[in-house]
Nucleic acid binder design. Structure first.
Lengths: 229, 229
DNA sequence: AGAGGTATGTACCAACTGGTGAGTTGACAC
DNA sequence: GTGTCAACTCACCAGTTGGTACATACCTCT
């Protein structure tokens, strides 16, 4: 992720490979857009919306600042595009969840574990979400592509809970969103508050040596709660 | 906490009352410092470190921008002072926790509930913590007043757990910090991620109508987990 | 081949931002 | 009274920031 000045060298594609067109490409709108989005995502996740600098993003591009404004219009629209792309990527991954074949208790434990893995694998996404919350979600609220869309993980959870309730295994004084909130809270907190927690308590919540333990705590937590009494 | 232009009117003290001196005060270092800190706290919590503007803070002061530099040195030092004051205020409140008279199970439920109340009552503090995490806790790590200091809430929790373990009531495959992490995660997430959660799932985690329910979920969650098996 | 729109690079700017130089005023000690 | 220093005001600045005017090169369609 080193800064690469716009030295006119052969640009490296950000994202997918070369288009069927030909071996030598100089003008490629899709590639330019994708590269801007990739660099901007890293920069906004790293510094926040106000802290990110258009000039800094441009400096890390093989193209120029002018292209950011040509394709995205401005800093705010670029940021919204970054959020939309990030959320859509995450939703795509969540759709691959498959725990239907397990009994409800094991399915819940597995879903919690996969959510755990998934959050750990995408710290930049969690940073973007934290940043967007600092801005009171004003950008995603205005984005048609983001507001109101359902969440695959929540659907899966709903199905598991329905089966659990039907079998009389789970307590019925919570709904799917409450349970999802508990799981998300644990997973998000671990990454989002890693740094202050580390400084104050002297323990890195993302320490690989404690990973399995933390993952088990989450599974036990949710299962114990749902099956209690 | 309304914006007050420097209109030369009688300044209202930020913090404590008038000093024994007399009824008319014009020069008062403590009061000026306190006012700057109060306005800066609101501004940094509202906009983040990079988003906050020294000129904006100065505009809301009954004194001038020059005084910010006179008393604090610069934007970053002002921000660190804000963090130190906020953490110290919160620690003071946590020291008032008193659940020693309850049996371990009820003490845990009570501690979780009080932590819940406490987080709900201080959204600005949670915003500051989120903001500081975006900056990877670099400021509190450098602050001697903040790094490494113990946490009263954690001490209380440790005592309760010790009693619970001694009585054979609690599982012993977790430590106090794990449990604290679970409680914090739930409480912090509710406030810190309120906005994106609201936009995406259409439910306000801080809705007063659901407050009691959420508080009960947290209590049940922690108790069910600790007493499981 | 050449018309014409898409894509791109260069140079530049006005407004803002954090920060400061230098002088002024009030309160307290003696 | 007056010396003295902390507390305070005012005007100012240099660097940065998001944004743009303008010229131009490339690719596709005919």
């Amino acid at each position: 992720m080193a800064a690469r000045p716009s030295d006119g060298g052969t640009p490296v594609a950000a994202g997918d490979g070369p288009v069927p067109g030909g071996p030598e490409r100089t003008r490629d709108a899709d590639r330019t857009r994708a590269e801007i989005l990739a660099v901007a995502t890293a920069e906004f996740a790293d510094r926040g919306y106000a802290g990110a600098r258009i000039n800094e993003i441009a400096g890390k591009l093989s193209t120029t600042k002018r292209m950011i404004y040509y394709y995205f219009g401005g800093k705010e629209q670029l940021y919204v595009a970054v959020l939309e792309a990030a959320y859509s990527r995450i939703r795509g991954l969540e759709q691959q969840l498959d725990v239907e074949h397990l009994d409800p208790v094991e399915a819940i434990r597995e879903l919690a574990g996969l959510t755990f893995d998934h959050h750990e694998a995408h710290p930049d996404f969690i940073r973007l979400v934290s940043i967007e919350n600092i801005h009171r979600a004003e950008h995603i609220a205005r984005s048609e592509a983001l507001s109101g869309l359902a969440n695959p993980a929540l659907d899966v959870l709903g199905t598991i809970l329905d089966r659990g309730w039907a079998a009389g295994l789970f307590r019925d004084d919570v709904d799917a969103l409450d349970v999802h909130q508990v799981i998300s809270a644990f997973c998000v907190f671990r990454t989002a508050n890693r740094h202050t927690f580390g400084v104050i308590f002297g323990r890195d919540m993302l320490d690989p040596a404690r990973r399995d333990h933390q993952r088990r705590v989450l599974g036990d937590l949710v299962v114990a709660y749902l099956t209690a009494r």
